[in-house]
Simulated scan of single mutants.
Amino acid sequence: MNSSRRKFLQKLTLSAIALPTISAYPFSIYAKQNLDPDRPILKVALMGLGGYAERVAEAMQSCQRAKVTGLISGTPEKLEKWGKKYGVPKESRYNYENFDQIKDNPEIDAVYIITPNALHHGQTLRVAKAGKHVICEKPMAVSVREGQEMVDACEAAGVKLLIGYRMRFEPNTLKVHAMRESGELGKIKFFQGQTGFKIGDPNQWRVDKTLAGGGSLMDIGIYAINGARYMVGEDPIWVTAQETKTNPEIFKEGVDETIQFQLGFPSGAVASCLSTYAMDHLDRFYLLGEKNFVEMQPSTNYGPIKGRTKDGSLNQPHTVHQTTQMDEMAQIILDGKSPIIPVDGNVGVQDMKIIEAIYRACETGQRQELDLG
């Protein structure tokens, strides 16, 4: 193993420290999977076997339309352990050097890429070339250029590219979407999105510019960006932003600690958002219309999501987000289903355009005009 690969694996292992423990969630990886025998099943290989991949793998044990059938990792010990745990045979386990061979494996339909941000681009191109569908964690890339190349590669290969925007399938989120669409909230005037936590281990890849492509905005702030778009129901046309950095030893050049940003929409609605790696207990969306408001707190974590309006609680059921996400994505890929709120690669590119504009606004102190195309 070369030194760069060893360093990468060490960073990936350390990153798991920042994630909540899996045992805190009320479902078992050993539960018998209740697959739907009457409909096709999406056979998924997980790439990057870190803490979040384990959460996805556990959640998928409750899926009706998706199943873990492949594993891709640079750590042989993980491939062995996960293979036994999830019933993935040796012939469907790959490393980062040989995973192009998935093209010859009929037991893999799609690859869920759950690796550091900077790796998504190259890995997506390789998966697409192998003729497999791609599900890519957010942010989809570290630049607009990379994101567009991913979209183009998947289109050329005739495969789907979906981004892991799990909140776009969450019941409370969809309830708010329906309320806005029906006019129940009235004309939307204002959105506030607060997203953040204390980063923890200073050596993890999330604060490494080379692997993360940025800092809090790429990781947690993207929820506020994404939320502003699907809660307001419009795409922003301008952005202003300000960066605050209190610990330059951890948050080095190009790695943002805290960013406040403001978005303007064609209707005149505005959004005020905060993204940070320096404060805990920031997970709140607030949407204000002329007739009603919606407050969601927590709004994006693993739940249960809680929401209320002036008339009381939203009272939507709690679901395991990744279970719902993977079943819905299976239907998008296998059945051609159109999701209520899109999760395709073009949406991911639009988010990257907003992220780049926010960084430019921080650097220049000037308002940036947006054209999401």
Rank of each mutant, 00 (worst) to 15 (best):
S3W: 11
S3K: 12
L12Y: 15
A16Q: 12
I17C: 07
T21A: 12
I22K: 13
A24F: 11
P40I: 06
I41G: 02
K43Y: 04
A45D: 07
L46D: 03
T75S: 13
E77A: 15
E80V: 12
E80N: 12
G83H: 06
P89E: 08
S92Y: 11
F99V: 08
Q101C: 09
I102D: 00
I108A: 07
A110R: 04
N117Y: 10
G122F: 04
L125D: 05
V127Q: 04
A128Y: 06
A128L: 07
K129I: 02
A130T: 07
V134G: 05
V134R: 07
P139C: 09
P139W: 07
V144E: 10
R145D: 13
E149D: 10
C154A: 03
C154M: 01
V159C: 01
L174D: 04
R180T: 04
K187W: 00
G193H: 06
K198P: 02
I199L: 11
Q204K: 06
R206E: 05
A212W: 03
I220F: 04
I225H: 00
A228I: 06
G233A: 07
W238N: 14
Q242E: 14
Q242Y: 10
P248Q: 14
I259F: 11
Q262I: 10
G264D: 03
S267C: 05
Y277M: 10
A278V: 02
D283W: 04
Y286E: 12
N301M: 09
Y302E: 15
G303P: 11
K306R: 15
R308S: 11
D311M: 10
D311E: 15
D311A: 14
N315W: 04
P317N: 09
H318T: 10
V320Q: 05
M329I: 09
Q331P: 01
D335Y: 01
G336Y: 02
I354Y: 09
A357Q: 03
A357E: 13
I358P: 07
Y359L: 15
E363A: 15
G365V: 03
G365W: 04
L370M: 04
L370Q: 01
